[in-house]
């Protein structure tokens, strides 16, 4: 379980992460979502001890990463797939990592095979495509057979084949009961694999919870109704927690009543319905709505400062 408590990181005047608290459930795939520059990478770097928090803590199972005697057995990390010496072969790159923790050489060959790089393992990584580098990054993360995988933007720059491969690999790892914590600025990509979401913007927590909860919290399902007497229907639909807006002479947008309820009420009032459609917010729209507020806020702040 990853727990962040009041995590804050400042670079001089600039605040990268501000009072960020969240929990990543054990054994679930959690997406870490935010626009570019929201503080996702900084948070992940603090998780594995590369950056020191200005204040607050981020821990794994109650321990700070750098205090673990066998960190790679617990956490597999891919922060930047290109963080490899380009003149070193994939095999030696992985071997040098494996040796620090005393993993046998067979383990290196095993992870190379898992990610399908065995045939190019002796080649310099400088000649690798981005997709191959991502595979090597995943291999390095898997070396210690860890319970927790932390992946920063693993889909970035991958071609469709690579995206599919990664999605299948991560799903497989999640099915084995591993905790997967992956960041992305693409909600649609995360929604295909993540159960939980942590959304941040401007370094602050914007939303956390299951994918469904977050989407419906931003905007409840709304229903579009086209009828012969919109005015009468609007009156009939009134109730607590119900909002009805008129978008045209015959058209209403209703929130807080299901299509089934609307149909029944219309029938009781003898109103003819021409169209009745539930409109669900797409994940990307939900994400945009959550982050837009944070971004607007940030822009206003900058204007005030200037």
């Amino acid at each position: 379980m990853i727990v962040s408590e009041h995590l804050t990181k400042r670079y001089g005047e600039k605040i990268a992460v501000e009072d960020l608290s969240f929990t990543v459930r054990h054994g679930a795939v959690t997406g870490f979502l935010g626009p570019n520059g929201a503080g996702k990478s900084t948070t992940m770097r603090m998780l594995v001890g590369l950056d020191h928090p200005t204040s607050g803590t981020i821990t794994l199972g109650g321990k700070v990463y750098s205090e673990l005697p066998d960190p790679l057995r617990h956490v597999g990390v891919m922060l930047d797939a290109r963080a490899v010496h380009p003149a070193r072969s994939a095999y030696h790159h992985l071997l040098s990592i494996a040796q620090t923790q005393g993993f046998p050489k067979q383990r290196v060959n095993h992870v190379l095979e898992m990610v399908g790089l065995s045939s190019v393992a002796q080649k310099r990584t400088g000649g690798y495509s981005l997709g191959m580098s991502q595979r090597l990054g995943i291999a390095a993360a898997l070396l210690g057979d860890p319970d927790v995988l932390v992946l920063d933007e693993p889909v970035n720059g991958l071609d469709p084949d690579g995206v599919l491969w990664l999605r299948e690999t991560l799903s497989g790892l999640a099915r084995e009961g591993r905790t997967v914590f992956l960041s992305s600025h693409l909600m649609s990509e995360l929604s295909l694999i993540a159960e939980d979401l942590i959304v941040i913007g401007q370094g602050k927590l914007l939303a956390a919870g299951s994918v469904d909860d977050i989407v419906s919290s931003v905007a409840p399902d709304s229903t579009r109704v086209v009828s012969n007497d919109a005015e009468k229907l609007a009156t009939a639909l009134q109730g607590t927690h119900v909002s009805v807006t008129s978008t045209g002479r015959e058209t209403l947008l209703v929130q807080g009543r299901s299509a089934r309820e609307i149909g029944a009420i219309a029938a009781a009032e003898r109103i003819t319905l021409y169209e009745l459609a539930t409109e669900r917010l797409s994940l990307e729209e939900a994400f945009m709505r959550i982050t837009r507020n944070a971004i607007d806020y940030g822009i206003n702040q900058q204007e005030v400062a200037a």
Partner: peptide
């Protein structure tokens, strides 16, 4: 950038 790989392995 391989320093990050090294320091993740030896934090």
């Amino acid at each position: 950038g391989s320093i990050r790989t090294s320091l993740v392995a030896a934090p």
